[in-house]
């Protein structure tokens, strides 16, 4: 089963490049165009990533994370929730760059292949930045009353956090 994951990226690249070649598009030059868009988007997220990496690093260095985790550990233990994941779970719906910075921090401190690292990975990949999506889409359509959208989005985030832990405990 684990082989699926290893194969996925090269296989997808093979199919996409192969299909492009058969369809007769100039694969190389389209690829380069895509890369220059990619450089722009990395450039675009860099300032906020930078700010958030610093915040996460200082937050951790100050010892405040341990203090908060310690305070919340009875609750986390009761729920079988790794305490290191709590800040991440709280920030995930709010900020994409912030959760990237926190996930990177978790990978450094707990390891990618630890239970916490795997849970953080699954949480990262199985939801979107709910507040951002709602703001962009409803802002663009000039909607004043978004009714139950945000509530549903956040409920879905909570559901996915819980499912991440359940599925990770079962799968690994």
């Amino acid at each position: 089963m684990a082989q699926v994951g290893v194969l996925c990226v090269p296989l997808m690249i093979f199919v996409i490049i192969g299909y492009g070649y058969i369809k007769g598009i100039n694969v190389f030059s389209v690829f380069k165009d895509g890369c220059s868009e990619g450089v722009k988007s990395v450039y675009g997220i860099f300032p906020s990533l930078f700010a958030l990496f610093i915040a996460v690093s200082v937050f951790r260095a100050s010892g405040l994370v341990e203090f908060i985790s310690h305070l919340l550990s009875p609750v986390c233990e009761f729920l079988h929730f790794p305490p290191e994941l709590l800040p991440f779970a709280l920030l995930r719906p709010v900020s994409g760059s912030g959760s990237l910075a926190l996930a990177s921090d978790i990978f450094t401190s707990c390891g990618t292949d630890s239970f916490t690292g795997r849970c953080a990975s699954v949480m990262m990949a199985s939801t979107e930045t709910t507040l951002y999506v709602a703001a962009v889409y409803f802002g663009a359509s000039k909607t004043k009353n978004i009714r139950h959208s945000l509530k549903c989005g956040l409920l879905a985030d909570l559901f996915s956090m819980i499912m991440s832990i359940i599925v990770c405990s079962w799968y690994f």
């Binding site: 994951g5 194969l7 990177s104 292949d113």
Partner: peptide, 25 residues
């Protein structure tokens, strides 16, 4: 980049959780 032994191992759990979350949402 963080030295995972098997970076793709999370794919199947990600699919399961994403799908369930989507249905739930």
């Amino acid at each position: 980049s963080h030295g995972s032994q098997n970076a793709g191992e999370i794919l199947i759990p990600v699919w399961i959780v994403s799908f369930l979350t989507l249905v739930f949402a």
